[in-house]
Simulated assay, not measured.
Amino acid sequence: MSEQEKCVDCAPEQQQLAQRSADVKAQDPLDASTFVPPAPLPSPSIAVEFCDRCRWLHRATWVSTELFLTFPAPVLKSITILPLNSEETRGRFRVWLFLDGQPPILVWDRKIEGGFPELKVLKQRIRDRVQPGKSLGHSDHKPSA
């Protein structure tokens, strides 16, 4: 294909896909600073990335349901579950928090944390960012003595 025949409109998309592909390959599975978060979402919102090959859909939906029950709209505007099905994303279970004007915050990564989130801990981490004064009742922090 000659230079004149190339689609000018598609070039930026192809460059973005190539860059994202390069980013995925450069990720270190135990270094959160190398992770690439999903596309921007309305703020505040949550994205749950999970390995579909590991059959973690039920866990991802359960976590999202529990978070919506704890932080109903308008506190959280959306919770997105993102099934991933590639060799690079095997075993992944990540929870991201999106807030206006801030880069995405990695709230949980199964590989770094050594397992799945205990909902109490996950809710506390999210609450501390979106509603610091909110009581989580029986699953709240114990006061420091």
Rank of each mutant, 00 (worst) to 15 (best):
Q131M: 12
S21H: 10
P74I: 10
L30P: 10
F35D: 00
L122Q: 00
F116E: 05
V63E: 07
S78V: 03
F35V: 00
L82K: 13
C10D: 14
P83Y: 06
S43E: 11
R90T: 15
F116P: 00
T34Y: 03
P40C: 00
C54N: 08
Q14D: 12
R20S: 10
R55I: 11
A60L: 00
T70P: 03
G91A: 09
L99C: 09
W56D: 01
P104F: 00
S64C: 09
P37G: 01
P103K: 08
R125L: 11
I112Y: 08
V121S: 05
S45D: 11
F50P: 03
C7D: 15
T70K: 08
D128C: 12
V107E: 01
P143A: 14
E49Y: 08
S139I: 14
L106N: 04
F68G: 10
S144P: 09
E49G: 10
F116K: 03
R20D: 12
D31M: 12
L17G: 05
C10E: 15
K25N: 02
P132C: 09
V130E: 05
A47M: 14
C54Y: 05
F98S: 02
L41C: 01
S45G: 15
L97E: 02
L57Y: 07
D23L: 03
A39G: 07
E118R: 11
W108G: 02
K134D: 01
A26Y: 03
H138I: 10
D109I: 04
P103S: 11
L76M: 10
L136W: 02
P74E: 13
R94Q: 11
P12Q: 08
M1F: 13
R129P: 06
T80L: 15
L69N: 15
P12F: 06
V75F: 09
L97R: 00
A39F: 07
N85R: 14
D100I: 06
R20L: 15
N85F: 12
L119Q: 05
